[in-house]
Amino acid sequence: MTTQIVGILFDGLAFGMLLFVLSVGLSVTLGLMNFINLAHGSFAMIGGYVTLTLMREGGWPFLATLPAAFVITALISVAFERTLFRRLYRSTALNQVLLTIGLVFVSAAIAAYFYGTVQQPIQVPDYLRGSHEIAGVSFATYRLFLLVVALFLVALLIGGLEYTRFGARIRAAVDDQRMARGLGIDVDSVFAVTFALGSGLAGLGGALAIEIVGLDPSFGFHYLVFMLIVVAVGGLGSVGGSFAAAALLGIFDVAGKYYVPALGSFLIYIVLIVLLFVRPRGLFGKR
């Protein structure tokens, strides 16, 4: 019995970690920069296709494509940030929604044009397949890998935002743009880098997601709802909050499906509604 519970918790947690990597960038852009980027899922999709292309056409090993998925997605996102998004930083939320949804449409069409509409599978290396048995509980290797990556990212992000000079600049630029400019901080490039970081993480998430949920041109739409849920429940702009929310949602989802399958599909949404009603700012939201 305990082995089952441990197994369920672990599976849920690992699924949550995937959601975390996919969503944390959105939490940053939405919470810190006040920019509603509904195209976040499309950046994740770009990362997925980068990994796919490098593995299939370039023969790269899976692990080596992951940094590439991060970097290339980040670069593409900066191009968009410089040309389109920055014009709308002070615009209304509705305009941001319309622009970024437009980009979701465009990116889905481009992906369908170049890669077709078919599901794109990848072959992860053998050492990430199968499972490890520890004390009678089997832990899927790929899920362990996801967990490690996510923990590493959390440490890096929290450490980076709280304890580095650049992190201090970001927080300064967000809290009071004019003051930050007055202090000589180049707010524009700080925002650009922050944006790139967030989108790059989405790209990494997209690459990691192929093995679990697959990849096709509708990816950008499909996971948008999950991403928004994680961000809202976690609290805007909070890395730790996104982490906690993603873990919680993953565990609730998997545990709910296991113990009450009839409610399995509802549970995650009911948790969302109740939680936000009680804590409208999310678990760790400050603003």
């Binding site: 849920g12 399958p261 009839a262 599909s265």
Partner: peptide, 16 residues
């Protein structure tokens, strides 16, 4: 067991 259509993760049902 019947599993939700929009269902990205199957581990719980497999365990059942």
């Amino acid at each position: 067991v019947r599993m939700p259509i929009a269902n990205p993760d199957f581990s719980a049902f497999v365990q059942r």
